[in-house]
Simulated assay, not measured.
Amino acid sequence: MPPTLGQNQYGKAETRVVRVTREGPVHHVRDLNVSVALSGDLAAVHLAGSNAAVLPTDTMKNTVYAFAREHGIASPEAFGERLARHFVDTQPAIHRARVRIAEYAWDRVPTPGEGAHSFVRAGGETRTAQVTCDDTGVRTLGGLTGLTVMNTTDSEFRGFVRDRFTTLPEADDRLLATDVTAVWRYAAAPEDWDATHARVRGRLLGAFAGTYSRSLQQTLFAMGTAVIENVPQIDEIRLSLPNKHHFLVDLEPFGMSNAGPDGAVYIAADRPYGLIEATVLRDGAPSLIPVDLTAP
């Protein structure tokens, strides 16, 4: 007996789509990871190599972006149902569509003034500490990693060096996101370690939300400065900030605009990414934190 084709499916996995909805100065974010799998009368593509019934997986990806822009994302469930029905209703060979969605939650960070456009990723943050004791005394480092933050406006990147390999366009208003890794050195033990850690975290978030960013370097220095100026027990803080790039999706091939006061749809890029690192010191304090934050 010859082999027979059993259950099969195909689709586009892990399409990252970030939908920013703007209601004046108040912004809302839905951040999804969408995976589509389709099945139906697809034996011919497996057995004879015929693509006559095959909707390209790239089209599935584009549909996710287009639907996010055109219909918005009221909820993962509603968005997934809309997608699944679309693929079954519009493709004669497709009898079953499965859409799996993971949503990454963002909590709002208070923004100075009337705006509301700063967010911190819910969950995933890790508090760190290192204590070294030898014959010279005790040295304590506090820290955190995986603190993911995002501003949906008040960030630009212009006036940079160009050479013959430069293709990056200048940005007057961009989405700025990063995963904060910070290590700070205590010059003196605080009365309450937990309260001081929370205070540092709050100053980092406040400076990120309150700084109009012309570069991630500028934002980093503002964050470190906010800690040094407001937490007297700390003499030094080292920050490592990867630039988590979000690029506007080109929807013009579908006759759709991805610009306007109501919001936009972004691709959340994985890699490569820019990595910005620096130390901020109290005036006159020595720099003692190792440069490599992965092995402090």
Rank of each mutant, 00 (worst) to 15 (best):
F208A: 02
E229H: 03
R98S: 12
L38N: 01
Y212C: 14
F157T: 03
T4K: 09
L293N: 09
E70I: 10
Q9F: 11
E252K: 14
M256R: 13
F119R: 04
S39V: 02
Y266F: 15
T140K: 09
T4R: 11
A209D: 02
V265K: 05
A122W: 10
V183A: 10
S240L: 01
A122H: 15
R164H: 14
W184Y: 14
Y273W: 06
L275P: 03
D107E: 11
V109K: 04
A68C: 07
V34D: 06
A105M: 05
Y273C: 13
I276F: 12
P169C: 06
V138A: 02
H197P: 02
V200G: 01
E277Y: 07
D262N: 09
F67K: 05
R85H: 12
N258G: 02
M60V: 00
A278K: 08
R203N: 10
A93F: 02
L168V: 15
L275C: 09
P253F: 13
L204S: 00
L32F: 08
T90P: 01
E14L: 09
H245L: 12
F221Y: 12
L176I: 11
H95V: 07
G206M: 04
S39P: 03
T178D: 07
I228A: 01
V109W: 04
Y104M: 09
A122D: 10
R271H: 12
V149P: 11
F254N: 02
L175S: 13
E81Q: 11
A171I: 05
N33C: 15
T15L: 10
Y266C: 02
A285L: 10
A268W: 07
H71Y: 14
P92S: 09
A269K: 15
I228T: 02
E81A: 12
G274H: 11
P232M: 08
D262V: 02
A198H: 09
D179Y: 00
M150A: 03
F79D: 00
R162C: 14
A264Y: 12
V161T: 15
A93D: 08
A97F: 02
R82A: 11
F221E: 06
D173S: 13
P110E: 06
P56H: 13
W193Q: 07
G72H: 11
V17T: 06
N8I: 08
L141D: 10
T196I: 05
L293T: 02
V227M: 03
T132H: 15
R30N: 07
R238I: 03
P169I: 01
Q217A: 13
N243Y: 11
R100P: 00
H86Y: 15
L141I: 10
P272G: 11
L248K: 07
A269I: 03
D107M: 04
V45P: 00
T59I: 08
D192H: 15
A43M: 10
D235A: 10
S215A: 15
R98Y: 05
L168Q: 15
G80W: 02
Y10D: 04
V17W: 13
L175K: 08
E191G: 15
C133G: 05
D173K: 05
L38H: 07
G40M: 10
W193V: 14
M256I: 13
R164N: 09
V180L: 08
